[in-house]
Design a protein around this nucleic acid. Structure first.
Lengths: 241, 241
DNA sequence: ACCTGAACACCGTTCAAGT
DNA sequence: ACCTGAACACCGTTCAAGT
């Protein structure tokens, strides 16, 4: 029996950047952005602050890495076997991001921060490419690719971010109903002179389904794209006046 | 030595919540979210931390108040005398928010944070109402008001937020050209196998105009809305198959 | 190369005390 | 009612020192 005597070591593997990012995501999921502190991380990983700073530059870099890791995972599940129409694939990708933000609500703020800081980070091209390929498959003329893909990505990130709060409470259906009821009631109590429209749609808030509503917005943009930027060779419809 | 950076002059008026929020916006504009510290505020207002906490609850509340103040100001300029078509008014409101975020880049992150936290804060109804009235004026059937207005608001906030970085450097045309050139070049250098679409549109990035692009997205949604939710009495177009 | 932990500068917030 | 400033707990980050 040639069993190697394993030296008693604290951790079985050396700490890695991946392991640290993984722990960061766990902390963020558990307690939001405020939950990610270097000290909480050192405790969870049984190490000192110096180790964190040796592997990842600083807290900001860690936040960026966590964001990229979660987005990459969400987009990785996209080629779901059977390819559908470009529209179907866009809906699937969009829902994947929507659900990722629902599962990691801190993503909403973090994506806004990261994207507003520099559009050529890691995250933007990833999302842009994924949507863009389907825009191309739609037959949109090349000159309109950037406009069409941008509109979709902007909408997806904007809508998903603003639904993060709803989704967080989605756990129980009763909680969700209570949440929507409270939201609806708050809107019904607004000043009738200042907020006639918002009051009028308050009951639609109570009954709506986040994901359906989100997809309805996607369909509005897709309809606009195929109407204003039809495949080359087909005449564009006259602008609605 | 009696030299001070600030004249040891006593304030003429008592501090007010409005004055504090105003100073907070100045600090945010000057140095981003990190620039707003209670200590920087006490120095600028020549007071102690207790005063800040007496007038506004805490730093979070101050951030919310600053966000609401800037958004309210942006929406207040909307009734620009001559009323146009609902489409024109939606474009004008959207551009107002776009420019507000461009002038106060910290708004992007702050809006995402505030909206993802609770959709029934102050800011959401303000924006929603402003857009919603024009959706109604468009003749959209009442059952589709919420969907149409939501799509527009989600897009506006998403797109404006993601353009905050570009806008920040918009000061000089030369700086802007350099910025877009760097962005375009970064995309051209992506892996050809992983990012064919993104590389293909890289040169459109260099030439695009933020505001035009933003409005093009608005028009895509408006086209979708008038196509899928035409005024009652007109038959909706068949879904694209 | 990787890790440790004390130390530093800074932060949000509280509160007894003043006017 | 409004303001002051010391004090507290906590934070991100650094760095000389260890293996």
């Amino acid at each position: 029996m040639a069993s190697r005597t394993r030296p008693a070591q604290r951790r079985t593997e050396a700490l890695s950047r991946e392991r640290i990012v993984e722990a960061a995501v766990e902390l963020l999921d558990a307690a939001g952005e405020g939950g990610l502190t270097v000290r909480a991380l050192t405790q969870r990983l049984a190490t000192g602050p110096g180790t964190i700073y040796w592997h990842v530059g600083n807290r900001g870099g860690l936040l960026d890495a966590a964001t990229d890791a979660v987005v990459a995972a969400a987009l990785a599940t996209e080629p779901a076997g059977a390819p559908g129409t470009p529209q179907d694939e866009i809906r699937a990708i969009a829902l994947g991001l929507f659900d990722a933000i629902a599962g990691h609500p801190w993503l909403a703020t973090q994506l806004a921060t990261q994207l507003s800081r520099s559009p050529w980070g890691l995250v933007t091209p990833r999302i842009f490419e994924s949507i863009g390929r389907r825009v191309r498959a739609l037959g949109v003329p090349e000159g309109d690719w950037f406009t069409a893909a941008s509109a979709l990505v902007h909408y997806i990130l904007g809508a998903a971010g603003q639904n993060a709060a709803n989704a967080r409470v989605l756990a129980s259906d009763a909680d969700r109903a209570e949440f929507l009821d409270a939201a609806s009631r708050a809107w019904e109590e607004l000043d009738p002179d200042d907020y006639p429209f918002t009051r009028a749609v308050a009951n639609q808030v109570r009954e709506h389904d986040d994901r359906e509503q989100f997809l309805a917005g996607i369909d509005l943009i897709l309809t606009g794209v195929t109407t204003l930027h039809p495949p080359t060779g087909q005449a564009p419809a006259p602008p609605a006046t």
